[in-house]
Simulated assay, not measured.
Amino acid sequence: MTAPNTAGLLDELDRLRRRTRIARRGHWLPLTAIGLLTLGAIPFYRPFDDSCTPDASGCALPDRGTSFTVPGLGRVDPLGVFNAGNIFPLANPLALGVYWVLALLAGLVLTVWWYRRRAVSAGLETSTGAYVKVTVGGLAVVLGIALAGGLLPDLRGFRVTDSGTEESVLKAALFLAVPVTLAILSERDLARTRGFRAVVVVGFLVTSVLGATVVNKTGGLMLFAAGLLVLAWLERSRWCALVALGYTGFTLLANASTMGTLFYALAWRPDGRLDVLFSAKDVLLPGCVALVGGLVALALSRLRR
């Protein structure tokens, strides 16, 4: 075969590979779903109205939070990574914590179902193994953060809110990078070795301990961000990667408790102490980024047909 013919064949193979990769992409639905699920948390950020009295009509006693006592550990709060640290006390932190757990599981089930459905209809399958691992493993980590904090109470003195913004963002980024990297590597042949399994166990422990000092109220956003980063790698999509990075960036800012400063800089002031939207400010920008990103991805997929 002559050199020109070989070059032409290679070019055709490259074009076929690109068309196949584009045809199997279906990230518009996971992006849209994650955006909607993120914004769906807004009503649960309703602040507690401490101006009313318990005997007033329609007024409830303040919620005591979601912590409970574990013998030998003291008070632990597994749902605190979803509901603690907000500027205003929440009317029902338990509802918010439960919502995030259910939202993460709903996003996981929908994503897996969607890609399996596409595999049947299009004949092209995108593996969701890494996405499942980072979501399930990450959920175990963030729920285990409370236990890590109970076993190592000195960690409470190194909370992310005690650090500067840049340091807080870097610590939270490291917390995200470990599970995302392990999930991606799990799709390689390396995952079959004993050494990698030991690394996974160590990584689980490290991220749990690191999370006890880093994650501040944004456990749900963190796990969605990790899932989006893994999804961008699975899809090899620049647009999905851009959306994932945008979602992650706003999540890191929210975790560092700087979202309020950002909105104040944009001249948005809360409409009274009970402004639900301002109370839910941490989820607004990440949710909008994912939702808009999903709709744009849907439009692009239609145009390519």
Rank of each mutant, 00 (worst) to 15 (best):
M1P: 05
M1T: 10
N5L: 15
T6R: 13
D11C: 11
D11T: 12
D14P: 06
D14G: 10
R15F: 09
R17A: 08
R18Y: 14
R19E: 13
I22H: 10
H27Y: 08
W28T: 07
W28C: 07
L31H: 06
A33Y: 02
G35N: 05
L36C: 09
L37H: 00
L39C: 12
G40L: 11
I42Y: 03
Y45I: 05
Y45T: 03
R46Y: 07
R46D: 09
F48H: 04
D49H: 05
C52S: 15
C59Q: 09
A60S: 15
L61A: 15
L61D: 14
R64L: 13
S67Q: 13
V70H: 14
V70F: 12
P71N: 07
G74Q: 13
V76Q: 04
V76E: 05
F82W: 07
N83L: 09
A84P: 07
G85H: 01
N86S: 12
I87L: 15
F88P: 07
F88D: 08
F88M: 14
P89I: 07
L90C: 11
A91L: 05
A95S: 12
L96A: 04
G97W: 01
V98P: 04
Y99W: 14
V101F: 10
L102M: 13
L102N: 12
A106T: 08
G107W: 01
V109S: 14
V109F: 14
L110R: 04
W114V: 01
R116V: 13
R116F: 11
G123D: 06
L124W: 07
E125F: 12
S127Y: 13
A130G: 11
Y131K: 07
K133E: 07
G137V: 00
G138W: 00
A140G: 13
G144I: 01
G144K: 01
A146R: 00
A148G: 10
A148F: 05
G149S: 09
G150H: 01
P153Q: 10
D154H: 14
F158M: 14
R159M: 13
T161D: 12
D162F: 14
G164D: 05
G164V: 08
T165Y: 08
A172T: 02
A173D: 04
L176E: 00
A177H: 05
A183P: 02
L185H: 03
L185S: 03
S186K: 02
E187R: 05
E187T: 06
R192F: 08
R192W: 09
V201K: 10
L205C: 13
L205D: 10
G211E: 00
G211P: 01
T213Q: 10
V214P: 01
V215P: 01
G220Y: 03
M222K: 03
L223S: 01
F224K: 03
F224R: 04
A225H: 02
L229I: 07
L229Q: 00
L234K: 01
L242A: 12
A244E: 03
T248Q: 06
T248D: 08
G249F: 06
L252A: 00
S257M: 13
G260S: 09
T261Q: 15
T261W: 14
A265E: 08
A265Q: 11
L266N: 15
L266I: 14
P270I: 04
P270C: 09
R273I: 10
D275G: 04
F278P: 02
F278D: 02
S279W: 03
A280F: 07
K281E: 09
L284S: 10
P286F: 00
C288Q: 10
V289R: 00
G293R: 02
G293Q: 06
V296L: 12
R302W: 14
R304I: 12
